[in-house]
Design a protein around this nucleic acid. Structure first.
Lengths: 337, 337
DNA sequence: TTGAAAGCGATACCAC
DNA sequence: GTGGTATCGCTTTCAA
């Protein structure tokens, strides 16, 4: 681990040519005579020379690396997005590195200020910051995924949270439910807010006034799902249906229902948002709003690379792609009518 | 996104000093008169200047970045290790980036050859390659975690797989089981192999000859756990106990048992390796061999940083830390005696 | 205390 | 085709 690195100069010297020529054969652009090319390649082989990527990057200002920054690496939703990103990036010759901010704004800032944030060619960002200002400060091709802040100055790939929630709530209503609870968290981002209002509108349209006591706001955590489901079901007038607005809240709700010895789809109807392991395990399986997670990563990455390749002059207008969601009906909603 | 970057030269010019002096106040090493320091700091502030980390790294050959390379980012075991790494690295002033090789050797090689692999200061590696040669080629401080290849030339942080499996199998035996099946995968790495032989020894010590038909080898996948459990339970002489040697195999086994309408801990006893969501959800909960996942990441990172800071001359002998495992007894093993 | 200048290891333009 | 050299943006002697 001590030997000093071999550089392009060493190769040039041993091959009896200039560094310029060595550089040429490495990058294969300019033409070089077959004889010298062969010789240089042999030396490179012998010396086991690998060019210093950082030096090259200093000149051409490109690293061919993308970063995908997510709030929480443990959440399968995010890892699916990451998977899509890695796949799409690879196809275009970019490497991807993953950074988890653990939902910590400071952590997110550190990324952008550090070596990484400053040296990737572009960023797929599922942000933790809530103010547009933070995003406007990012002077690098960036695509916001899932969470979008208005006026942030970047393109986005989102899903139709409003419609997803609307369909879920409508499904409850159409099956005759009226006492429909919703468990969510702070409306810091568009996603959470939209889900609430989608639910809200579906109820309204069917003449149901959402009861404040049926709206439980936590921190989008599994324990919130557990605790609020407990509370709801043990209240004087329990709901007949619960809308768990993300995957971990849904997991918590399922556990609570189990601990209460209630039967899903019988004693209580349930719809989740995003797939999760338990939703697919319990019987009957739980109806969820599904979204094209991997696809979101792919689309975002393609947009990003497109942007990276576009000359600074001819950048286009801001763009937001909204992907559709799908209500995956299974057996967790009881028909009351 | 077009404006040209501000450099140290701009700052120097505007402050009427040399770049050397600006560099000095940025790094705060050499002493600079209070007057000029103040002035330079003001200019830096005004210009919103952020030094180019890459240029700096070219000189001092340090990036203060660590990479943690895992086979699969979706597996909670690995994300736990990552979590430990990030925490420990941060404490020492290092940033961490995550790379998933998706169990693909080519992907792993690309990492090492690419920008990333060549520019981090050290690597926490849960490898995918099976031959020592690959690892010996890594000329950078590296700690192998979990999977270890003999003669690879790097330190390692492992767990006592043998004992974990041994305790699990012994637990079965002590509860009177004799027909004990094991589901694992290829013995490409020490971990899988050790788990098998730990099981083997426990049985032998108690006078039980492991029956070949009870050893099912797949690819360490959930579907293997599912399929083999089905096969085993539908065979002429089903086992009374199954040892599922990793978290996803255990998940598959639980699903199969559910689909067969069997009761865990009653019709079939089960022990898993590593925690998993279903093991904690089903009732009775499933006994598992637990290991200090986060702790593994922390220990490995501390070793790594230690190594990075050690002058090349005085490197110590290779070292392997083996952390202990714990059999977390719950209700999935029936007492037959 | 401060400045000039020599790198760090590549690329790319301009000559020849 | 090939070589010389300025350059990228910073750090670090060496002098002054």
């Amino acid at each position: 681990m001590a030997e000093k690195e071999i550089t392009i100069k060493d190769v040039a010297r041993l091959a009896g040519v200039s560094v310029a020529t060595v550089s040429r054969v490495m990058n294969g652009r300019d033409r070089v005579s077959d004889a010298t090319r062969k010789k240089i390649q042999r030396i490179i082989e012998e010396l086991n020379f690998v060019p210093n990527t950082m030096a090259a990057s200093m000149v051409n200002k490109k690293t061919h690396m993308l970063a995908v920054v997510v709030p929480e690496i443990q959440n399968p939703f995010y890892t699916a997005v990451i998977g899509g990103t890695v796949e799409a990036a690879k196809k275009e010759g970019f490497s991807t590195l993953v950074v988890s901010t653990y939902n910590d704004e400071a952590e997110e800032e550190e990324f952008f200020e550090g070596f990484l944030g400053r040296n990737v060619d572009g960023i797929i960002l599922i942000g933790t910051h809530k103010e547009a200002g933070f995003y406007r400060n990012i002077r690098k091709p960036t695509i916001l995924v899932d969470r979008y802040i208005n006026d942030c100055g970047h393109d986005g790939v989102l899903i139709d949270n409003f419609r997803g929630a609307y369909e879920a709530a409508k499904h409850f209503v159409e099956y005759g439910h009226e006492r429909i609870a919703i468990i969510d968290g702070a409306h810091d981002f568009n996603d959470g807010k939209d889900r609430y209002w989608g639910y809200h509108q579906a109820l309204h349209e069917h003449g149901i006034v959402p009861e404040p006591g049926y709206h439980k706001q936590g921190k989008w955590l599994e324990e919130d799902g557990y605790r609020f489901t407990m509370e709801l079901m043990q209240s004087a007038e329990p709901p007949t249906a619960i809308f768990a607005t993300n995957n971990v809240i849904c997991t918590g709700a399922i556990k609570a229902i189990r601990d209460l010895n209630l039967r899903i789809g019988e004693d209580i109807s349930l719809i989740g948002f995003d797939e999760n392991e338990l939703a697919q395990f319990v019987q009957p399986r739980v109806t969820v709003v599904g979204r094209p997670m991997r696809e979101m990563g792919i689309q975002a990455t393609e947009m990003l690379i497109q942007k990276i390749k576009t000359p600074p002059g001819e950048q286009t207008k801001l763009k937001r792609i909204v992907l559709d969601v799908e209500l995956i009906k299974r057996g967790s909603v009881k028909k009351l009518n």
